[in-house]
Amino acid sequence: MKAAVLKEFGAPLAIETLPDPEPMAGGVVVDVVAAGVTSYAANVFNGSRNYALELPVAPGAGGIGRIRAVSPDATTLKVGDWVFCEATVRSRDNAADSILQGWTYRTAAALPLHRLYHHGSYAERMLVPTENVTPLGEIEPAEAGRWTALGRLLVPFGGLIAGDLKAGETLVISGATGGFGGAGVAVALAMGAGLVVATGRNPGTLDDLVRRFGPRVRAVRMSGVEADDLDNIVKAAAGPIDMVLDFLPREATAAQVQAPLATVRHGGRIILMGGVRSELALSYNVLMHKELTVRGAWMYSREAIPRMIQMIRAGLIDLSQFELTEFALSEANDAVAHAAANAGPRQLTTIRP
């Protein structure tokens, strides 16, 4: 099979021929039709993200495809089924040990998983754990690229489930101008949020969110001055804030995190899903007396995937909101560059092997 291979950090992806994967107990072979390219893929491939990744590897975290060969212990999946391939592969004897297939292994204990399910979706075919493929039902082949938005939508969905968002509640999404934060606005509204306060630094992207989603979204441009940002968030909410979903990037400071966290009501919830590397000075007294829940959430449960597919099928989330740009496998390096330059919440970049 043809694949885009990362042979060393800092080198371009090379289009090479790799052995076809073989089905085995617990794993199915999928013909990859569309694979999403993240905006930070270039930073993974040049090594600046310091992701644990054994080279050479065909990267690519998940995608959309059709089953080519089923595992002998599968009873429902059939050859030809359209499926979403979930990248989070968990050890069967310790779920805390996990990898993102074709992307990174999170702990040394997970290295055997990385070696078994080594190659990702920037390839014509890949071997995927049986439990990591979810049937989509029939879709048009031309729409496969849009369905890669599942990977974008599911991450905030996992956070909103972790925070138990309820219909009618007010939510602050911190970092709403990024890919996951912007997708979180759509998901929260689909789940029945009464009001979403979207915060970020890009006024054009914030205005676009309000324009697309209407009066249930209010935008707050963050200045970096904590007192001013806190005041503006409270004014936009015009009432109690039930939950904060944080998607701030690695470059964000602790002060940027603090303002949204300080706005949540008594008994509210704070869900951290971003990449911030700063230490947070959380007040013991405030956490106790306001009875706040602060929780980290990484990715999402497998149960979230069919739920999100149902939401899309029901029309609660419209995949046409995403602007799709597709590249052939031979253009993988162009796809990586394009994704980095077009990192907004509505932009999807895909490779079509």
Score class of each variant (00 low, 15 high):
Val286Phe: 09
Ala183Val: 03
Met273Gly: 04
Val187Asp: 14
Val29Ala: 01
Asp31Asn: 14
Phe213Lys: 03
Ile173Tyr: 02
Val196Asn: 03
Arg216Ala: 15
Arg146Pro: 11
Ala281Phe: 01
Gly179Leu: 03
Ile351Thr: 13
Val257Glu: 04
Asp207Phe: 07
Arg211Ser: 15
Pro260Asp: 12
Pro249Gln: 13
Phe157Asn: 06
Gly159Gln: 11
Ser278Trp: 07
His118Gln: 14
Arg92Gly: 02
Lys7Ile: 02
Pro353His: 05
Ala52Leu: 15
Gly344Asp: 00
His118Glu: 11
Asp231Cys: 08
Ala297Gly: 02
Ser98Gln: 07
Leu319His: 11
His338Gln: 11
Gly26Glu: 13
Ala87Met: 00
Asp31Pro: 01
Gly179Phe: 01
Glu303Ala: 12
Arg125Tyr: 13
Val37Ile: 09
Arg92Cys: 02
Ala87Arg: 01
Ala108Cys: 03
Gly275Asp: 01
Pro353Thr: 13
Pro345Val: 00
Lys78Tyr: 07
Val294Glu: 09
Val286Ile: 15
His289Met: 05
Tyr117Leu: 13
Ile270Glu: 06
Met299Gln: 15
Ser48Val: 02
Ile305Cys: 11
Trp82Asn: 13
Val133Met: 15
Pro23Cys: 12
Gly214Asp: 07
Gly145Cys: 12
Ala252Asn: 00
Asn333Leu: 04
Asp246Ala: 01
Leu230Ile: 07
Val28Asp: 13
Ser48Tyr: 00
Arg90Leu: 03
Ala95Asn: 08
Val257Thr: 09
Pro345Gly: 03
Thr17Leu: 07
Leu287Cys: 11
Ala328Met: 07
Gly192Ala: 11
Arg218Ile: 09
Val155His: 04
Pro240Lys: 01
Val32Thr: 11
Ile271Phe: 01
Arg152Thr: 15
Met1Ala: 02
Phe180Glu: 03
Gly62Phe: 04
Asp231Gly: 08
Gly274Cys: 00
Glu291Ile: 06
